[in-house]
Design a protein around this nucleic acid. Structure first.
Lengths: 254, 254
DNA sequence: AATGTCGTTCGGCAGAAGGGAACAGCCACT
DNA sequence: AGTGGCTGTTCCCTTCTGCCGAACGACATT
């Protein structure tokens, strides 16, 4: 970050750069961090030792790694949404019956965040995991969510972000996107036809409150090569929607 | 923290104090934080706005809350242990068949950390959740772990911590504790007889590698009032041990 | 309309974070 | 076993910056 706005605490920004670096590199040493962030060794060491003394970083075999203490912050943030507990078992069930990957998403700062993810027997590895963020406009979960949003909020979203292309199938035209959302509203579920990752499709449905407000969304992703089989074997859209409804009921009475 | 050791970055310590405060208070405002931490409003504001711009804190309805971005750090730390994926489904199953609460623990800095927790039908609410830390000496998971530790590591642990009493049943005597561990080694599982929370018992078993190294532990907690029934209905120690063994196998081939 | 509370912004100063170099500890390699 | 090169760690010094206090602006409350 070159342009640091006044009133911001720079060392905090540095610390999180350090954290993100050792996260993305599965642990690192002092010199390593110093070089990567272009700071002196003493600076890197200062941050790492501070974080270690706070318990947010652990040092094992001479390499610094992200500590489990972040689980407490992370899980706490997740618990606020009152979705995790209810959605977990439904997602597990969905993954088991379909054999594919299932994810539960909520939205923060106009970005989709997976608060839970579970893999069925046949599920392929993807880049997404618990805590990772995705664009809303090119995912089944994201489109389900947007389609359930009040008009004003949807407007605010479209003002804020751009429908940037992730693959050749991503919907980037605003009008086409609004039509897509309309369609999703009508049918009650969203499809992702390789709009984020080539070769991967997904079926998603919004998770609503009893009052109709959208809390998040749930989806099942399937490789395109298997999508026909999966849809035939089990009516995927229907199953995903049913799971979403069950989660609504569970969250209401808890 | 009054005594700040040289070489430590103070603002990082402050930032995490801020984070922990807004976590423990389910969100807070600037003035609130400033008063609680005895810093000026501008300082609190600086930290909060920095954290917000980094996405680690979100501001909704004028209150700052812990952001979901910590999930990415937390889940990443958890994934390192290669236990979560394998243990999750086993824990779920254990919770379902017993109807009680089941938890999976690993150890970091001589503290037990719950990397997963799931509640069965009858499970009572406790103070523990994903990410929370517990003493090793007064929990079924912790004792299972310690009992499986090489002698040298156990020695290091006993040097480092004190067997402080949590309830009247906590084992605080070193000799008695070593005997307890011996017994646990013999029988292959650990019991917690209200040693951490009055009224709560638990059965735990260590999760080992094929080579015999201990990775963590799994346990089922049951209120004392129900323990007789549960143990009779299902041979709890046997079930917990079986789950632990299944996790070993799963982690080996993944 | 007035008062209290809150969040935000603005300078000024002191303290602290960062840089660099020197020290120490470790492993590998010869 | 000795040596070289790599680490991590510590030290001091400079200067930058994070902290404070106060003033401002935005609300809500009475």
């Amino acid at each position: 970050m070159t342009a640091s706005t006044p009133g911001r605490v720079q060392s905090v920004e540095t610390t999180f750069e350090v954290l993100e670096y050792i996260r993305d590199n599965e642990g690192a040493g002092v010199t390593d961090v110093a070089n990567a962030l272009s700071v002196s060794k003493s600076t890197a060491h200062g941050h790492l030792s501070t974080l270690t003394s706070l318990g947010y970083v652990v040092k094992t075999d001479g390499t610094y790694r992200v500590g489990l203490q972040f689980l407490e912050l992370g899980h706490h943030a997740r618990a606020r949404y009152n979705l995790y507990e209810a959605a977990k078992s439904e997602a597990d069930q969905l993954a088991q019956t379909t054999g594919e990957r299932c994810q539960v998403m909520v939205v923060e700062d106009f970005r989709g965040v997976y608060i839970y993810q579970t893999a069925g027997e046949k599920a392929v590895q993807t880049d997404s995991h618990i805590g990772s963020t995705v664009d809303l406009h090119c995912t089944a979960v994201g489109k389900s969510y947007l389609a359930s949003l009040p008009a004003a909020d949807l407007e605010a979203y479209l003002e804020d972000v751009s429908l940037s292309a992730r693959t050749e199938h991503t919907i980037t035209d605003r009008e086409a996107f609004l039509e897509e959302l309309e369609k999703i509203r009508d049918q009650g579920y969203a499809l992702n036809l390789e709009e984020r990752i080539t070769g991967m499709r997904a079926v998603g449905a919004p998770i609503l409150t009893e009052g109709g407000d959208v809390l998040g969304a749930i989806s099942v992703s399937v490789p395109t090569t298997r999508i026909e089989d999966t849809v035939h074997e089990s009516d995927l859209p229907e199953q995903v929607q049913r799971s979403a409804r069950v989660i609504t009921i569970k969250t209401t009475y808890s």
